[in-house]
Each structure stands twice: as C-alpha cells, then as structure tokens.
Design a protein around this nucleic acid. Sequence first.
RNA 1: GAGCCGGUAGCUCAGUCGGUAGAGCAUCUGACUUUUAAUCAGAUGGUCGUGGGUUCGACCCCCGCCCGGCUCACCA
Length: 494
Amino acid sequence: MEELNDLLLQRRAKLTEFREQGINPFANDFSVTHTTEQFLAAHVDDDVAALEGCNTPYAVAGRIMARRDFGKAAFIQLQDRSGRTQVYVGRDNIGEEAFDLFKRIDIGDIVGCIGTPFRTKTGELSLRATTLRLLTKSLLPLPEKWHGLTDVETRYRQRYLDLIVNPEVREVFKKRSRIVSAIRDFMVQHDFHEVETPMMHPIAGGATARPFATHHNALDMDLFLRIAPELYLKRLVVGGFDRVFEINRNFRNEGISIRHNPEFTMMEFYQAYATYEDLMNLTEQLIGHVAQSVLGTLEISYGGREVDLRAPWARLTVREAIVKYGHVDPTLLEDHAAMVEIGKGLGLDVDLATGHGKLLTEIFETVAEPHLWNPTFITAYPTEVSPLSRKNDENPEIVDRFELFVVGRELANAFSELNDPIDQKERFVKQMVDKDAGDDEAHSMDEDYIRALEYGLPPTAGEGIGIDRLVMLLTDAPSIRDVILFPHMRPESK
RNA sequence: GAGCCGGUAGCUCAGUCGGUAGAGCAUCUGACUUUUAAUCAGAUGGUCGUGGGUUCGACCCCCGCCCGGCUCACCA
C-alpha cells in the first residue's frame, strides 16, 4: 500500500469531491484558441482605455503556477508551452458556482480559461476570466515557488518536473531543437541526403570503443548497439549517395562524466570528391550558420569566458600544438626517448615501448587540449592512432585528418577516408591481432565493408560532430546532462 | 573502477558537547474584489537515505550498503 501524506490525501479528497459533484477532474472537451504568448502579443500595445471595450474572447489553457487570493477574487499565473499569463478570477465574473470550484483548485492543476483582455492597476496585461474549468487535477504538489527545484538528482530523474518549474531548462531544450533543425537545414542546402542506418550491428565498427551487447532471440544472434554509423554511411557513398548525413544516437559502454553519456547524439556526414581540408571550411560555415541562426551572434560566452566563433579558425598540427602549449623544444619532437621522458614528467603512463604516435597524441591531449578555447583545428595526426584515415601523400606517418576543439573539448573529428580495400583489410587484420591480445576496443574485421570498398569508394571525406557537446557550447551548459532530456541514471532505490 | 563531498517536512535549507528536530515557502482554517515571493491570524506536517555498532541515550560518533555531485581513469 502506497503511503500518502496529508498533502497527497488532501488532493485525492478534492478529486473525489469533484467527481461527486459531477465535475470531471480529467476533462477533455475544452477548446483552446490562443497560447498565452499569442494572447499577450495581440494586446501588447493597448492601454487601459483601448482595452475598455474589447470583448474579444480568448480561450487559453495551462498549468496554474501561482495564485494570489483576495476572498472573492484572485490572480493566477497560467503557464502553457509558450509562456505565462496572468488571469484575474473574480466571483462576479465567473459566477458563484464556478468560484466555489475555483477555490478548491490547487497550484499545479491544469485549467482552461475564457475571458477578455484588460490591464490591472499596475498595468499588467491580463485575462479577465468569465469561464474557468478544471481540465486536469494534479495530485502532487509542485516545488516551492521561489527557490524552485534545484536538487540535480530530482531534476534529472523527474525531468517533467524540472521542465514545469524551471523555464531556463525549457529554453535549453527548445534551443537544442533549433540547433538540430539549423544543422539539417544547412546540410540539406549543401545537397546532403539524410539517412538512417542500423542501430543494431552484428559487428560494432567505425570507432574504437566498447559496445553494449544484446541478443536477437528469433535469430539467436548477438548484436551490438552501434558505436558509430561510419561503415554503413560509407557503404552508402559506394552506392552513389555522394553526400550523406545521419543525426542519431551512438552507444558506448564506457564511463559517465560531465561530458559523456552512454548514449549520445552524433552527426556523421560524408562528402565524395572532398578532402578533410574542404571539411574544415564546411565546418566553419556550418557552426557559424547554426550559431548565427539560433543565437544571432558568433561571439558567445561559455562558463563566463568569451568564445569567438568567427571564421577563419586557428589551424595547428599536433606537433605545433605541443610546441606552442607544452613549450617543448621542437628539435626533440622526433626523439622518442626524450619525448617519453617529457610524457613521464606529465604523469603519463608511457614507456619506450609506447608507439611514438600514441605518445605524441597523449602529450598533446595533456598540454594543449585544455588551452584550445576558441575553435581550433588540429591536424597531422599520427597514422598509428587513426585506423580509418587516409595516409598523407607526402608523409605516410601522418593522416589527412583533423579534430576540432572548442572550450578545451573535442567537438568534431574528420578525415579523408581510407578507400584502398587492400590497405583497409590489412589494418583490420592488425586490429584483430590486438583484439586477440586482449584489446577489447580493437576493431573487428568487417568482410562486407571490405567488399563494398572493393567495388570502389570514391575519394571521400567524412566527419562526426558531437551534437550534445555543440548544444552544451551554444547553451552555456556545464554538463552533458543539462542538454540530454533523460540522462542515464542508476535506478531509484526503493 | 578510485578519491573527495553530500542525502533532515512536498520544496529550499538550518541544526546539536551525543539529551528525543526547526525556519521560509507549500498545505489546511479564518479575514480580504487589482495582486506580482500579495498580506494578516492560527494550525497540520518528519521511520533525519538505509542496515548494523558504540552509548543510559545517536540526526550527530564508528562500520557496511544505496543514491547523487565533483575530480581522476576509459572515451566523444
């Protein structure tokens, strides 16, 4: 048996009372004509006198967020998807019977009001209700009006409550929606074709990460939630979709942090007959377009610091960044023993057996990444850490790849694709060796992908952009949980 | 997975050398027909995350566990 405290019992008692009086506490027959925003916008310029004779009826509906009672009249704040408006409820206007009902209506209840506009003594445009109906009885009390709901655990677990009481949270998610729309608009304008590829993969490929495993009963086969759509999207380029993109979830069975959620949203796109350098230009334009259309500016603020998104963005190689931010003597960059010592000095778990490319990457991440505040493209990644990238024509030790960093975080990863099926097969084979040696993040062999490459993948560049992180940047959110409606949580303890 | 911090009324928070828990808002009762965190008077409301231990006595001290936050590790 569920235990109910006084607050809950009182509301249930009112529910029963309403039913006994023939009032449906979950009515579904109220027609709304306007949002609160439309109502306010219609009369924003009208003064007291102009509204005097205004008999235009407005029917609005929403949740009661506050009420201020004066015996035979009251003001309530009605909240709908567009915002809030104040409604004046007077006994003389709605009648005695309706007013009796109104007196038993709680904050949190959802009501429908029909009325006409007027301005109060203090000048606030309000709705004078002539009809007020209960549409949904709320059985749980809302958080306090002044401090609201701040407990982060409750905010994430009961996002509906967070959304009811915290308008800035609603704004973040509205903005997230506009950001995704702006991205789609941009991609479609640039002749990219949107697709959806499998979320359940027999082989988890396209990235190095531990997957979630699941099982298909009827087929009696193991499947993995995808860690990246990459290999499917490139199959589509083979198929002739020269420009494709997908915005969807990836799943990685790894740690949770302020910037990692087990499921996260990524846009991946592929453009045939383009190089990673073309994608740097496209990325500047894309993020510029999104920021401009959603925020109206390219000069934004994150965590109290200015971020300048205006193109062109800085471009540095991994080695240049190490020299610039790590103050490393450039003549030592290729001296493995010296660099191992520098790595150890930084507290990295490296030794002489560590590959030079991996070593440089780790040093870069430690000394440079946190300083890359304004958008910066980092290029010339070691081949060793880039199994799917095309080797640079002049220097096979590096690949044609960039990563984009903003506010000290990786936001995008892109490269000219490896389209030589023989080279690709060799790299898969090497990964299989690593896997057998115990590296459970190593790539698996994907025979069908090799077959697709054998038909011929045109020269192509591809990129992945972390949508959650982009939203964090553009909404000034400190944690990825603030931009994911239902972030992953352990089950509530009973 | 490790370290640090936290969990007290519906919400936001106090609290004590270890002596049986308090405020504001919400709720309930009453007053009030132009308020803006309305106001005034009164009242109700708690297994102090959970399970042990120490103690005459534990919200407080000790141990285990659960949940969360931050940092680190893995990674995007």
